[in-house]
Amino acid sequence: MRAMAARDLSPRRAAALGLFVAVMLLLPLLVNAYIVSVLVVVLFSAYFGQSWNIMTGFAGQLSLGHALYVGLGAYTSAALFVHFGLLPWLGMLAGMAVAALAGGAIAALSFRFRVGGVYFALLTIAFAEFTRILFDHFGWVGATEGLFLPVANLAHDDPLRLRGSPRMFYYLLLALSLAALALSHHLLNRRVGYYWQAIREDEEAARALGIDVFRYKVAAMALSAAMTALGGGVLAFYDNNLYPDTVFAMSRSIEIITAPIIGGLGTLFGPVLGAVLLTGLGEIMTNLSNAAEISGLKQWFYGAALLAIVALQPSGLWPWLRRRLGLEEGRR
């Protein structure tokens, strides 16, 4: 069963969440710089997965082109910073607005013309790839040469200007991810969450129950795009360099969606679990295959792991783990 809205936080669930947050808060203080950098990747993946999950996991519209919104968020905030010195957080707000407009427009166009299912999924790829190629020729943001942010060597972290250590980004992303978790939980328990899930399960029935399906689908896409763009903005200031072919890459879109699917599509914690597992797996494979000096070994194991998961737990690992840990929503 997917996406059961939690009715109330049972003591056991509250304790598990508290433990998780405590571990995540303490972790960067206990491990070396390399592990912190891996954890940053985990949190990016978790946050993007959570953002995508709203569109596909809750509202049931398969988007395969979410790199588009990462890129719009990243480029908008970075370009405004480079060209006008605009404060990153303001630039990220602008990026969210741009992405929400783009996502809303794509959704509105598609759903108005009754493009759905796999056609919609392929259309989202097309828009992402189209934009990637446009940015390859967009001189103002550096085209294929890339857009670079000046690196300042500060003695201390400056969260306001988003300059600082990986550890600062870690906490920032942790906050974003927890906020996304809270927002997702909140939305699922409100009318809009029920409506999205109804649309996911059966559009025609949803419509017959008075739901303006078109409006709610467009809203899901706009929100999901805006959240993704916020993460894209942070990514820009973490990476300090942007190339269309990596920021908008199809492979990024695929990475964004694999973690939540592996973890459990439509569940609250699935994207986080999926991010931990996939990033962890990826790192181990990278180290192993570097040691073995065989190119392709990492991808091979990665593909085999995906295959194993889709064969054994096609609805994701979190629903299974949740049962094992006795953390299911209270049934009364």
């Binding site: 398969l62 999924a121 969606i257 699917i261 995906l306 295959l307 998961i309 889709v310 096609p314 609805s315």
Partner: peptide
């Protein structure tokens, strides 16, 4: 999305 993941795994 499950079909997608399956074929993605094969592709990889």
């Amino acid at each position: 999305h499950e079909q997608f993941l399956l074929l993605l795994a094969l592709a990889t």
